[in-house]
Simulated assay, not measured.
Amino acid sequence: MRGAFASETIEIAPDPVVIGAYPVTVTFDLAMDAPDVQGRLIAPSGRRWSVDFAGQPPPCNWRAQHTFSPEDEIGEWRIEASAWMSVETRFFVEKAGTKPRTRFPEFDVQPREAVVGDPLAVTGRLESSADGDTWSPVPGRPVRITFRQRDTCGFVRVTEVRTDDRGAFRTRVDAEASGEYRAEFGGPGDDYIGSHSELVLFMATTNTEILNYRISPVIRRGKKKLKHTGQLHKIDTDVYPENETISTSMDGETYADATDDRGRFFIYTKRKKAKWTVSFGGNARQGLKPCNENASS
């Protein structure tokens, strides 16, 4: 089973864009299932530039770059990417030395591994500095908690929390998938240069396992295929979940099937000698005991 896909946001690096005496080259990455992607960069004044996206290996399978000069406009910019649908992300271009810089000296998510649906404690601190040497707390400011699911492209907003008098923040989110969390600061009208934290890797588990995983070569609709079979089982129970998606990926293609009333799945893929892994929840590390087999072509 395959379908058209696109990331919800465009990844931008560096972000924010801080220009000084020298040009800064910025990279824009996104995922989109399309033969061609058209890009457009829009300045705060409304001026527009065409941006050329070129294909690259997944998960972010399209990339464009643009070099900002010291004379470029300061403020909120937009990057758009269009094919069968459009994706837009806003970002800020700042002038070095005009505002205090910010940083996250602390950011953490605990526990680092948890069952899907369990609460996670997210903590951190936000600081600012006008000279780059002396750092002080940034109180009473909103911090965005964002997440990038494993093997996907683009961060999505999870929640927002406000810093206290010490610049610290604490909130809770629910575990949904394996991936990376980060904290972000910055927005329209801020009197600071924005920043984001280091990434925190999180692993979601599902209390399930895949039993009796097998691969066999077959002829299906006149074509040589591999047939992947197995059974989804809830650990320490007699439950074999129904209508849950089991998937596998190879060379940027994803194949999937829903489990039947006995937890069984039947996935047909191209025939290729490789170490195949099937997974529940779209991620081979989400609480599964991965089953890998070499299948000859």
Rank of each mutant, 00 (worst) to 15 (best):
M1S: 14
R2D: 15
R2P: 02
G3T: 15
T9K: 00
D15M: 03
D15G: 02
I19H: 00
T25G: 09
V26M: 06
D36G: 14
I42A: 09
I42H: 12
S45M: 05
V51Q: 10
Q56F: 01
T67F: 15
T67Q: 14
F68L: 07
S82A: 14
T89K: 08
R103S: 04
V109R: 00
R112M: 11
V115S: 00
P119S: 14
L126R: 04
D133M: 12
T134G: 07
R141W: 14
R144D: 12
T146K: 03
R148V: 06
R150V: 01
C153N: 01
C153M: 08
V161G: 04
D164L: 07
F169M: 11
D174S: 02
A175G: 04
E176M: 12
F185D: 00
G194L: 06
G194I: 15
G194P: 12
M203E: 11
N212E: 14
Y213E: 13
R214I: 08
P217C: 06
P217F: 10
K223Q: 10
K227A: 14
T229E: 08
T229D: 05
Q231K: 15
V239I: 15
E242S: 11
N243L: 11
S247P: 01
S247Y: 02
A258E: 15
T259F: 02
D261V: 02
W276Y: 11
T277D: 04
V278M: 03
S279V: 03
K289Q: 10
C291Y: 08
E293A: 13
S297V: 13
